[in-house]
Computed example of a mutant assay.
Amino acid sequence: MTNILARLVEQQGQAPVNQPRDPEMGQDRALERFQKFSPSKFLGGPDPEAAKRWLEAMINIFVTLNYTEDKQVHFAIFQFEGPARTWWNVIRAKWKREGTAWTLVNFVREFNEKYLPPIVQEKREDEFIKLRQGTLSISEYETQFTKLSKFALELITTEQRRVRRFVQGLNVEIQEA
């Protein structure tokens, strides 16, 4: 069993034996695999929650598929339509002019600047700061904590600070226990 797993890991980056090694065919296969997840199209618009959900769905797909960052950006923009496509054309020209690398980090930064403006991010940071367990179950509280924590990363720079902030938001009787 160990030998089989070792051979699978060894072959992971290689093209399958019975598949053509044409790079365009590999790209087609990659797009086909991506589309099997039925990713939603993104039109843009004023709803930051919809933008956040779309971006999180894309990132989840990319984590599963383990594609290169360049391919992740190309497949994400493949899902743009209408105003989002128009916005992206402007960003693409800017990236070309400035020589910006096609990385997911750069894409997410641009996307967030456009669709999650600072006022929305500040609001989420405030929600994180004010988050308390209250009537939430511990599981629900943990979900909210995790969801909002990405908007206040400077407050939880270490695991120790993250744990301390989490515990501070728990109900007093649970903190004491």
Rank of each mutant, 00 (worst) to 15 (best):
T146M: 06
N112W: 11
F62E: 05
A93C: 03
K130C: 10
R109P: 12
E154A: 14
T146H: 09
I156F: 09
E122T: 06
R97Q: 15
A93Y: 12
L131F: 08
E110K: 11
V105K: 12
I156S: 05
W87L: 04
S149W: 04
Q121W: 03
E159W: 12
I59T: 00
V105Q: 14
E159Q: 15
F111D: 00
L55Q: 05
A57S: 09
L153Q: 13
E142G: 14
N66I: 10
D70Q: 06
T100S: 07
T135K: 15
E110F: 06
T146R: 14
M58I: 02
S40K: 02
I119E: 04
P118T: 07
G134F: 07
E69Y: 03
F75N: 00
L148T: 02
L155M: 09
V90M: 14
I59V: 02
T158F: 05
G99N: 10
E81N: 09
L104S: 12
L104I: 06
A51C: 04
L43V: 07
W54Y: 02
E142D: 01
T157I: 08
F78D: 12
E127R: 03
F78R: 13
E49D: 08
K71R: 12
R124W: 01
R85F: 10
E159T: 08
T157S: 09
T64V: 06
Q160E: 12
W87S: 09
Q121M: 13
I61Q: 02
W87P: 04
E122N: 13
W54C: 04
L153F: 10
F62H: 07
R109S: 10
T64Y: 00
T146L: 01
I119T: 15
L136Q: 09
E127P: 05
I77A: 07
Q160F: 08
D70A: 05
W88F: 05
V90K: 11
D70G: 08
E113D: 10
A76F: 05
D126V: 07
I61C: 03
A152H: 01
T157P: 12
T86Q: 13
F80G: 08
K150T: 08
E56H: 00
E98C: 07
R53Y: 14
L131M: 00
T143N: 13
I59L: 14
E142K: 13
E98H: 13
E159K: 15
I129P: 00
F151K: 05
W102C: 11
T64P: 00
Q133W: 07
E81F: 04
E81A: 11
R109A: 10
E140A: 15
N89Q: 09
F151V: 01
G44C: 06
R132L: 10
F62L: 01
S137M: 02
Q79C: 13
M58W: 05
D47F: 04
P83E: 13
P46Y: 03
E56Y: 00
R124P: 00
E113V: 08
S149Q: 03
I59K: 15
W54L: 03
G134H: 09
S139P: 14
W54N: 03
I61G: 01
G44I: 04
Q121L: 11
K114S: 10
E127I: 02
R132P: 05
I119L: 14
E159I: 04
V105Y: 15
V120Y: 12
E69C: 06
Q79E: 10
G99I: 08
L153C: 07
V73E: 03
